[in-house]
Design a protein around this nucleic acid. Structure first.
Lengths: 138, 138
DNA sequence: TATTGTTATACTCTATAACTATA
DNA sequence: TATAGTTATAGAGTATAACAATA
């Protein structure tokens, strides 16, 4: 069990990725959201990114952000706001309805996550926290 | 920084999920695969799951497995095999070409992952390993 | 009758290329 | 000329419902 083997690190990350995806998918569906919509909502709770930044945060091409945002705008959860400093840039923000809804996503995720990973020790949780902060600016 | 807060645990997992998705997406695209195709290939390296088990492992409906598998069959990477004990069941296996290809996915992921998370300590890596094994049978 | 995999359908996500508006 | 967001397009992933084969 050589935990410093890069392939094992990759395997573990892929495994966690699959598991989180499954849990998040179920939670999102219960809230009538897709995984990507849920992720975007949660990102907005701490930032007002441009569309290009959103593409980087969500790991997809910028052209996909338009439609993704459109569907959430149609539901009244997010709103576009032109950047005053550079009018080419559009920033995204939660509407009041979106700001009220976003904590429900995280809380539903928290409940589901505790069912699967509730037995993790404090040390393991802080390690996960470090991993989450290490990866990149995302 | 109360790492035992369930919402923080959920937030960290969602963050890792997004980051891994971004990295895996880029790696998969380089190998002319989608994220789901790459995940399926890696799952097959240690199992020969039924289609129902695959759906659970990948966190999607069983009806999606048919098309996902079809595209990999068309590329000669995987093969269906009817279960002798229960002929309703189809099990999936890597072809020789698929078995030769699968390690390249994990190695490419390992290289990319080391770029992002290479600074993790041994303790953090083994914590991640525990998290990956805790979630479920997946 | 119940279960496994498939098909049909509709919608969402995805990248590539070409476009508009702004810088 | 370069950059941010949009549109058009084609392909892949997604769930729901209905179906065929097997148990």
């Amino acid at each position: 069990m050589s935990t410093s083997d890069p392939v094992e690190l990759a395997t573990a990350l892929m495994r966690v990725h699959r598991q989180v995806r499954t849990v998040l998918g179920a939670v999102a569906r219960d809230l009538d959201l897709t995984v990507q919509q849920a992720e975007l909502m949660c990102v907005l709770s701490t930032r007002n990114p441009s569309f290009g930044e959103l593409a980087e945060l969500l790991g997809c091409d910028k052209t996909n952000i338009t439609g993704l945002v459109d569907r959430l705008v149609r539901r009244g959860l997010v709103a576009r706001r032109v950047d005053d400093a550079d009018r080419r840039v559009t920033r995204l923000e939660l509407t009041p309805a979106g700001a009220a809804f976003e904590p429900r996503i995280k809380e539903a995720m928290a409940v589901a996550v505790e069912e699967h990973w509730g037995s993790l020790s404090t040390g393991q949780r802080s390690a996960l926290d470090a991993i989450a902060r290490t990866g990149s600016s995302a």
